[in-house]
Design a protein around this nucleic acid. Structure first.
Ligand code: ZN
Ligand code: ZN
Ligand code: ZN
Ligand code: ZN
Lengths: 132, 132
DNA sequence: TGTATATTGTTATAATATAACGTTATGTAA
DNA sequence: TTACATAACGTTATATTATAACAATATACA
């Protein structure tokens, strides 16, 4: 069986919903909003999310337990993610900076560990919130 | 009222326990283990953890919902944290690398956002697990 | 001493996530 | 086509993580 080519029904429904949002969504908020499309139980949402995260279509904002669609259409590095998070309005933006991703992908410390993945979350105040 | 100088009773108990562990601990595992010291409810643990995280004595490993004592005794930058996480044995190490922390603290993207904090989690296989 | 803030103790509950089971769909190869 | 393996689905129950709300006590300090 080769790598999955198409998304399944539930996966499409969830991805669709998350892509339309312009901010991270909580799993249960997704659930409430896709119930009219037939997904009735948390597991249906979580399973779709798991797969979508695995293939890089969706990222999890770990510090917020929330899910956001990948905005880097060419995001080959679905496992190398960086986000900026405004601590006031909670706006989250995926950072797409090749210098940063190169720097982190090549990072080695003295532990002899080679890293295949990373997740970076920056916190601060966005422009809007800073000027309030 | 000036900044807290000493830890409270519950804070000491929790910090003590987390410092003795050499891996991240879950909040409820902490709870079970400090019950003999009088902390009976989740909130007592969470409140102590909150404060300890705030003052940088403890960090939260967001991807694991677990808590680990800060190993950088001189960790002035309690809000600039980086960890390496083995995806096989779950060993977690706090990274203390001044080049990395400088690079990230000075990082600016085109959003005009200045970051006061960050949390970085690297994933891979530790030496031991790689050689299995 | 009076006052503000931090911490505590306690019960209940909210929010997040997974276990376990059986069924159905899809891809691969004989 | 049939057989087999893997992936996805549906469902119920439950585990895990975290906070709300309220009253009491302790601490710092003017
Ligand atoms: Zn992405
Ligand atoms: Zn903002
Ligand atoms: Zn630290
Ligand atoms: Zn390991």
């Amino acid at each position: 069986m080769q790598k999955q080519q198409y998304l399944s029904k539930n996966q499409k429904i969830v991805l669709d919903h998350v892509e339309k949002a312009n901010q991270p969504l909580k799993a249960y908020s997704i659930l409430y909003n896709v119930q009219k499309k037939g997904l009735k139980a948390p597991l249906q949402v979580y399973r779709a999310l798991d797969k979508l995260v695995e293939i890089g279509k969706i990222h999890k904002i770990e510090s917020r337990n929330a899910f956001v669609a990948c905005k880097n259409s060419n995001c080959v590095v679905s496992n190398a993610t960086a986000f900026s998070i405004c601590e006031s309005c909670e706006k989250v933006t995926e950072i797409n900076n090749s210098k940063l991703s190169k720097y982190l992908s090549n990072f080695e410390d003295n532990s002899g560990m080679k890293y295949s993945k990373y997740n970076l979350e920056f916190f601060g105040l966005c422009k809007k919130c800073k000027n309030k």
